[in-house]
Design a protein around this nucleic acid. Structure first.
Lengths: 329, 329
DNA sequence: TTGAAAGCGCTAACAA
DNA sequence: TTGTTAGCGCTTTCAA
């Protein structure tokens, strides 16, 4: 590992002051263009790279944001992470990623440990109680994603209208018995989606049934598949695509035809067309949501906590191959 | 955002020197236990958290490692990332994650940008040419995963013996025409796996065919499915589970039965039993590999570059439901 | 347009 | 066992 040249060494070598070198990088507008060029060229030549820690210490800006997700292995998160990463990079910031492992205590410890080292934290699909989140939001610069807590900055992926569309679609097909298969109980999205399915089902005069795939895993959903059809549901809306996929796996084993015997609609559009038949789902503009949150964090208009703001992106229903008219009995 | 107390303020408030506070955190063994307790209690009370940047600047240790992967959305990586994260956390280090987007140039830029800010970099499944990697490894503290470049520190997930087992298994079942469906050409794993399949096929007197699913996506593999069976393969070994899954998707659409008409074996065990039928695959001890690499990075025995070392973990064949005897023609 | 100097918060000799 | 002091590398007034 070649010892890294410092700003002072570069300056000495060039016969200028350290401030000049510094300015060549941070405020080139204050320097004559040829000095800037000279400094940059020399920096390039000796492989000078600014020391981020020194800069952070001096300026008080960390040059990084943090990103906390409950489960990186859930296919919903990687696109979100990538988007956040790209937007942060564009703003000249690195990103610290952490996985809370669906554990609220671990999540809180992560927030407290990371917050001081970064300019702000993107907390996605938090599993913390609202009161804790409100409290933490008052102490640290947090942008919540997919968690609707009053008094905080939050960007939401709102499935409500898409769920309405989904139920209208199913009702139009002739379905009358609808099941919702939920995911993690601490998930705001889960609660929101269940409520939307239930409310809209009642409005449309459909019979509503609710199930919970405890931990929200493929396996848990698969284990539920028999029960769901056994209770007469002809269409199911799943909390997310992982659960929808799990149900499909269960149905395949039990020779329950999708969509012949049962229609399925997932959520998140995380699986694209990798299921067979391709899964109908609810799609979100995840990239825009990430951009919004990152932007809020990096807009240095206000140095402290973010203003209480609620931004919601609506999802849209994407029909592929897992819905059809119910089988006549 | 409450302004963060500094070590000096805490010290003043306690009537001790800053060094005492510092030592309470870093070298408590040098202090009387009751002073340590007193300091820690006060720190807790006022919410003091050490400033990582100041510490890093002072000690020269960054308190973080970097992690670069080519595509976070590929299900192979999240478990690896989690494992690395857990081991790093256990060593008191944070982790910076970056996604190179399968782009070698971007990967190199990331290495150069991140290396100075961290204690070391875990570069997973690098897409850079070996010569670049060797060069970068000489300049920065890198631990490569899944890339076998002489002169570097690398930990490999070696599929060779498991592929031998897979081919013996298929040959035993009566298969004679084997196809390999490859992934990203820049992937060392891909080249290694293809070579292993080819070599072993010849040894067993099997007819070997090679295909490439260009970008290594589900869709690319799916598009290849017709060709593969069309050319008479009765068994296919895929570069990874994503490709295996894509082939299964294609076969399902074309009413080609798995494993009745064609047997499939994937690699990485990234999909668990979420396919139907459950995918036979090659499984690796990813967690151990990550631990090995993180450990090498954090073992401060040597401060500079890591020693040239080659650690290989063998994979194992996991038979689930996608292989059987070939259909008689 | 550039330089001098102070200081960001912490650690680590060296003293006491 | 604790305190004093001098930086770590950078930015940023303030002067020139």
């Amino acid at each position: 590992m070649i010892p890294r040249p410092t700003i002072t060494q570069l300056a000495a070598q060039l016969g200028v002051s350290p401030s000049t070198v510094s300015r060549a990088f941070t405020r080139p507008d204050l320097l004559r263009t040829d000095t800037v060029d000279r400094v940059l060229a020399a920096a390039q030549a000796v492989g000078y790279v600014p020391n981020n820690h020194a800069r952070a210490l001096s300026t008080g800006k960390a040059g990084a944001i943090g990103l906390i997700v409950p489960d990186i292995a859930n296919p919903f998160f990687p696109p979100l992470i990538r988007a956040a990463q790209n937007h942060a990079t564009a703003a000249g910031l690195a990103v610290f990623l952490a996985d809370s492992d669906e554990n609220p205590d671990r999540e809180e410890r992560l927030i407290i440990a990371m917050a001081p080292q970064v300019e702000g934290l993107l907390v996605v699909s938090s599993r913390l109680p609202s009161s804790r989140l409100r409290d933490l939001s008052g102490r640290y610069r947090l942008a919540l994603v997919n968690r609707d807590v009053g008094g905080t900055f939050r960007v939401l992926l709102d499935a409500t209208s898409a769920i309405h569309a989904a139920l209208s679609h199913l009702a139009g097909l002739g379905h009358t018995r609808i099941a919702y298969v939920g995911g993690p109980e601490r998930s705001w999205s889960n609660r929101q989606r269940r409520a939307a399915v239930e409310k809209r089902s009642r409005e449309l005069g459909l019979h509503f049934m609710s199930y919970s795939a405890g931990p929200g895993t493929y396996e848990a959903a698969k284990a539920l598949s028999r029960t769901v059809v056994g209770n007469g549901a002809t269409a199911v809306i799943a909390f997310d695509d992982v659960l929808a996929h799990g149900l499909m796996g269960g149905f395949a084993e039990e020779k329950v035809d999708v969509p012949g015997d049962v229609s399925i609609i997932g959520c998140d559009d995380a699986l694209a067309t990798t299921t067979f038949p391709p899964l109908s789902t609810i799609s979100f503009r995840v990239d825009e949501a990430a951009a919004e949150a990152v932007h809020a964090l990096t807009a240095h208009s206000s140095p402290g906590t973010l203003p209480a703001t609620r931004v919601a992106f609506e999802g849209s229903l994407v029909l592929r191959g897992t819905t059809s008219t119910p089988r006549r009995d």
